[in-house]
Design a protein around this nucleic acid. Structure first.
Lengths: 257, 257
DNA sequence: CTAAAGTCTCCCCTAAGAGGAGTGTCAAGC
DNA sequence: GCTTGACACTCCTCTTAGGGGAGACTTTAG
């Protein structure tokens, strides 16, 4: 029993183009060619195609798959190499996602990505909802926390106020830095405390340690570091140092309790 | 102060080809062109290039980056979309890595990937070491466990014996299945227990529950399922059911202690 | 016998550049 | 003024794994 390209493609769940391609590469050669030039595949070719698809799932290049199936090349070595490659990609992906999450979170917090126009806010609930929608989905997926559910009606003035608070906080910190106030000065600490209280007032309760973690991330992440540094040179580093000092002082005072 | 392509590329850490490419796309247009047709970039272009690179880090397509920088398109929406895309990729990657790891582990356990020639073993220590090297690195990275350190000299006959035991185990299970012996038959349980004891004898101590987890993975993973099914239709399912029953019986007997 | 469906080969297209050929330009040293 | 080496330009092809379509031919159903 021989199969035409359409039948073969249908059985394996690939397109006819794919069969043409594999033929050209020598990866899957038809058992027979009719006198009209039609490709005809047999049972062995179908099985080989299945094997090809398994390795393709592993994102192995077709050339490596050919090596494997033709017995040239050490299977374990090729698979291990592929694992290393994918692991590297995974780590890179994780880093990118961290950046994206923080980026979205800062959009949410109203920290403008455009230092020129610090923050304008949104005019309508729809604009806010759209800005929050995907982040909300992410939060739900990652932490089971539904942003939009807990906040069914978006209070546009309140959201704009929250964003304005974040902008004001950053402006204050930038001013402290310019004025030479030390990162562990009590004034700076009080400003951080007020920011946290403001966030808590908006329903976003963070611990000082969590704030420190966020600022540390900003430092290490070029995207956010540049955003902060665009607003005021050194702000990212100052912010991180200030938040770390604040967290440490809170921790030790907690221990004294 | 204007910069040539070489200077611009050097400052930004990209190639001249990239600058050509971005020019052609209209993503980064030189401030000026000399009468000889040389591209000359100014400070603003350098800054725009930095922004481009930041977004490129996020693996945003150049077209979307252009939209963003030209103010067409909602930044939050684009970033959120990108996050969803990358999240999906991450999940897919994780699944692929699971398959790869199990595949490497089964190579290590001597389960042949080629059902035709069940297992041949390796002739030299070098062959074994090469087969184990990358997996060892992976184990160390993931679990801090050094396979090669704990086994500094590879005992080739012993490794081949271990692999032969795995092959024999699978052959026995396939026979049980063909002979209609129930997956929770005491004979099957005893065979599983012997396999675990053999593994423990080779220094690979698994609990019945761990074995059940492995077989469950084989079931859900098309690569391994096919490998087992090639040896004997239904073997993957039988193995999973048998291991699950074994683990459950061991657990309940443990509770009776 | 005709029409529809199937198949063939050939060519161009994708994203983000890399590599190279052939040609032109710039600054320095003679 | 001339040469030389570094630098720049445009244009072409190549990479992955196929997708899309044109134009020609074959097979199948009615």
């Amino acid at each position: 029993m021989l199969y035409t390209v359409k039948e073969t493609a249908g059985l394996a769940g690939v397109t006819i183009k794919t069969l043409h391609h594999y033929h050209k590469l020598g990866l899957l050669v038809p058992r027979e060619t009719s006198e009209a030039g039609y490709r005809l595949y047999g049972k062995e070719e179908l099985e080989r195609l299945q094997e090809i698809l398994i390795y393709r799932e592993l994102e192995l290049p077709l050339g490596r798959i050919k090596e494997l199936l033709d017995g040239k090349g050490d299977r374990a070595a090729i698979l291990a190499e592929q694992e290393g490659l994918l692991l590297a990609r995974q780590q890179r992906l994780e880093a990118i996602l961290s950046t994206l999450r923080a980026s979205l979170a800062s959009v949410n917090a109203g920290i403008s990505q455009e230092p020129q126009e610090l923050f304008r806010g949104f005019a309508t609930e729809e604009e806010w909802r759209e800005a929050l929608r995907e982040q909300s989905e992410h939060l739900q997926e990652m932490y089971g926390f539904d942003l939009l559910e807990s906040e069914p009606a978006i209070d546009v003035p309140a959201m704009n106020e929250q964003a304005a608070e974040a902008a004001a906080f950053l402006a204050d910190m930038a001013r402290s830095l310019r004025e030479g106030i030390s990162h562990d000065d009590v004034e700076v600490r009080e400003r951080l405390r007020r920011h946290l209280q403001a966030l808590a007032g908006y329903g976003q309760a963070f611990s000082p340690a969590e704030l420190a973690g966020q600022t540390r991330f900003f430092l290490q992440d070029s995207f956010h570091r540049q955003m902060l540094e665009d607003q005021q040179t050194g702000l990212a580093y100052y912010l991180a140092a200030a938040a770390a000092a604040f967290a440490e002082s809170e921790e030790s005072s907690e221990n004294r309790d």
